[in-house]
Structures are given as structure tokens and as C-alpha cells.
Design a protein around this nucleic acid. Structure first.
Lengths: 96, 96
DNA sequence: TAAACTAGTTTATATTATAAACCAAATATA
DNA sequence: TATATTTGGTTTATAATATAAACTAGTTTA
């Protein structure tokens, strides 16, 4: 009846991050900070989990002497996101 | 940007239960057991959380000498479910 | 050179989700 | 008529999560 929901995506902040990344294709730490309104610590942790799962790629460089973290969704991540959208849709459209 | 997701509904099993209840209007323990595929313990716990939040009403009676637990969604529960659907939709339709 | 700021990471804690273990009563079986 | 099994759950234990607070390392400003 109900498809399982990928636990990695079934998290408000990680879902926010992925939702942003699938639409912009590349975003830095501060963009995610602004758009999600989450704390830096939380974002840092969730970026690493998404990276470990290969849902995103993370590049660390320097920009104006400051560290600069840029995230990009992978094909794996897009697929997972699309599967998640399909799965959770099955919970939402109750056929009343 | 992203609306907060009601933590009580942002749980696979509780969302399954609510999704079933909003469409059938009344379901017993075994129906939820069959439809969700979850364990009895888990269902018991989640029913109580939904009841505590007044998202559902629970009536315990006896049927053929056995205990019989029947759940019914409340207006509060329907509202919460509808708000959840609206909120999570904002995460899913990325405007690519 | 000290204070404040940037850009994060690590750690601690509280909450969750979940299954395993348990329970009482009813029924089936030997 | 014991006793084993089944029904319909609840309680408890544990592992995983989400999150914020505290911390780090370096830069800029006064």
C-alpha cells in the first residue's frame, strides 16, 4: 500500500536542502543557510549525510580568503528525490 | 520559503495511519495493522500519540469477546493533515 | 592588538521510531 | 481438564535522529 520513505530524505532540513539543490544545481553554504533558516551546525551535519550517501557533491575552496563550501546534487540524488516525491505522494492523495 | 512540517505527521507510520483514517473515517486496530504492515507495538504507540494530540478518537470495546480498538479521525486531525499536505507540497514541486 | 566577524565543525542532548518482550483473556487441542 | 496457542493489544528497551550549543580556525576592522 504505502511505499517506504527514504529516511535520508524524510527529514525536514535534508529535504529542504535537496529541494533547493535540485532546482538550482549549485548552492553554497550561506545560500542554504539563508533559504532554510536552519542553524549552521545543523546544515553542516546534514550536508555531510547527503554527501556520504552520494546524493550531493561538496567542493571546498577559498573565496576572498574565506572558506567556501559549494554543493551540487548528483544524478543519484536526483533519482532519490524523485523516488521520494513519488512515494510520499501516495500518502497524500487519499482517494476520499 | 519552506513551511514547517508538523512533527506529529512527519513520521512514516503516523502519516500512514492518518492517510488511511482520512479516507475511511473509521478503522480498527487490525485494519491499520494489515494496511500499514507495521508491528502491533509500533501501531499502539503511534495511535496513542495521535490520540493525545486529538488528531484521532479511539474507542475501546469488545467484539466477539475480544478487545476491539476503533479509530476515527477528528476535525482537528483532518485540518492538521491538510496543512501537512500543503506544507510538504512546497518541498516537492521544485520549479526547475 | 584586541574585538568582532566569517565560515564553518564537533559535541551534547533531547526526541523519535521501532521492535522485542510482555500481558490478560479467549479459544483450541491432547 | 490441563496446557498450548491465538487474539488483541501495551510496555519497555534500544538504536537512530534531529537539533542547538559550544567550539575551532582564520580574517577583517578599529
Amino acid at each position: 500500500m504505502f511505499k517506504d520513505l527514504d529516511p535520508l530524505l524524510h527529514s525536514q532540513l535534508r529535504l529542504s536542502i535537496m529541494s533547493l539543490l535540485v532546482s538550482v544545481e549549485s548552492a553554497d553554504f550561506n545560500y542554504l543557510l539563508d533559504e532554510t533558516g536552519a542553524t549552521k551546525g545543523n546544515i553542516s551535519v546534514q550536508i555531510n549525510k547527503l554527501k556520504d550517501a552520494k546524493y550531493i557533491e561538496v567542493k571546498k575552496t577559498f573565496k576572498n580568503n574565506y572558506p567556501h563550501t559549494v554543493c551540487k546534487v548528483t544524478k543519484t540524488g536526483i533519482n532519490a528525490f524523485e523516488r521520494y516525491v513519488e512515494a510520499i505522494s501516495g500518502y497524500l492523495n487519499n482517494k476520499k
